[in-house]
Amino acid sequence: MTQVAKLAEIGTSVWLDDLSRDRLKTGNLREMIETTGIVGVTTNPAIFAGAMTSGTAYDEQIATLKERGAAVDEAVYEMAIDDVRAACDEFAEIYRATDGKDGRVSIEVDPRLFADRDATLAQARQLFERVGRDNVMIKIPATPESLPAVADALAEGISVNVTLIFSVARYQEVMAAFIDGITRAHEAGLDVSKIHSVASFFVSRVDSEIDKRLDAIGTDEALALKGKAGVANAHLAYAAYEKTFAAAELPAGANVQRPLWASTSVKSPEYPATMYVAELAGPNTVNTMPEPTLRAVLDSEDITADTLSGKEAAAVELFAQLMAVGIDAEDVFAVLEREGVEKFISSWNDLLTSMEGQLA
């Protein structure tokens, strides 16, 4: 049994955090589905920026778009939608076998719309319709302005991946938006068993920001806490998930919104490559990871049991220790959310600039 199969047995679905035309055209994605056990794919603006600005896989389509006089935004989305549609087809069998739980492929709304509820919802509808596959999942950021659009999209029957979640407080709002949306979908007469959602909780970036602050404090007590906050924060999120959905009165047949661990590649060479996988394995979760992390997981032997359940007390104590040495967790999460949005916008703008040059 592979480590990915062990994760599945524990309850964690493994998705690949990457997609490109090269993976599709060469059969690499199909090969990975068959040989590694991945059961879904996530994308983001940075992933598409990397894919579309390197190699020659998109040259033929870019030439066609150029001849047609396509606007740069339309060109980028047309290429991304084609990739996502093709990936959805690759995962169609898994989607059917798991009743829609897995076999999912995510595509994100324009990150520049993060503060505009109406525009976010309009694009979520458009992406859902244009991809035209039941197993597509539309990514919407968990900013205060976009959360109402999350509920609105779910209420219309659109499966949503809520992304860029850093704090448990924001996660509580995400779950509330999900419950609101799925309840409204049921009231509208939709089949809620067909609607799925994940909440993408970012992990490694928490350690990156807090480790930097612990280094600046520099005491032995502070340095001893490095590399522990990201996992502890995820443990708190999982405890919140268990409590929320144990108490929630969801419509009959509705699925719970699964926690998805994102940003799971370690950013420090001091930490094991599988740290954000082995320490975040548990029932009804997803872990999306770039290929190097996936390969490290397949080569490891450290995934043996549920490492999520029953961790709340230890995580609460860890954050108490962080506060005692001078870490302001609320400020950390505010910085990470702001920077997360800014990084995706920057990647998107870089992609548009590059594509504008190719279409000119």
Rank of each mutant, 00 (worst) to 15 (best):
residue 132 G to Q: 13
residue 135 N to D: 03
residue 117 R to E: 15
residue 244 T to E: 15
residue 312 E to D: 10
residue 14 V to D: 13
residue 319 F to Q: 07
residue 19 L to Q: 04
residue 260 L to K: 13
residue 188 A to Q: 12
residue 133 R to N: 11
residue 214 L to P: 07
residue 91 F to K: 10
residue 95 Y to L: 02
residue 8 A to G: 10
residue 151 A to V: 14
residue 326 G to M: 10
residue 239 A to C: 15
residue 16 L to W: 07
residue 71 A to V: 11
residue 308 L to H: 11
residue 129 E to Y: 01
residue 204 S to P: 11
residue 253 G to V: 07
residue 72 V to F: 05
residue 167 S to E: 03
residue 73 D to F: 12
residue 244 T to G: 12
residue 79 M to L: 15
residue 135 N to P: 14
residue 300 S to G: 15
residue 58 Y to W: 07
residue 276 Y to M: 05
residue 15 W to I: 00
residue 187 E to C: 10
residue 163 T to E: 00
residue 3 Q to S: 10
residue 352 L to V: 04
residue 33 I to P: 00
residue 95 Y to K: 04
residue 32 M to C: 03
residue 168 V to E: 13
residue 228 K to W: 08
residue 149 A to N: 13
residue 358 Q to S: 11
residue 184 R to M: 10
residue 156 E to N: 03
residue 303 I to Q: 07
residue 275 M to V: 15
residue 68 R to A: 14
residue 76 V to W: 02
residue 257 Q to H: 09
residue 172 Q to V: 15
residue 206 V to W: 10
residue 230 G to E: 03
residue 27 G to I: 05
residue 110 D to M: 01
residue 158 I to N: 02
residue 222 A to R: 09
residue 342 E to T: 09
residue 261 W to D: 05
residue 108 E to L: 07
residue 148 P to C: 09
residue 207 D to T: 01
residue 7 L to H: 12
residue 66 K to S: 02
residue 45 P to S: 14
residue 108 E to M: 11
residue 6 K to R: 15
residue 272 P to H: 08
residue 113 L to W: 02
residue 183 T to W: 09
residue 277 V to W: 07
residue 181 G to H: 11
residue 176 A to F: 08
residue 151 A to H: 12
residue 28 N to S: 13
residue 192 V to W: 02
residue 287 N to I: 04
residue 356 E to N: 13
residue 331 D to A: 15
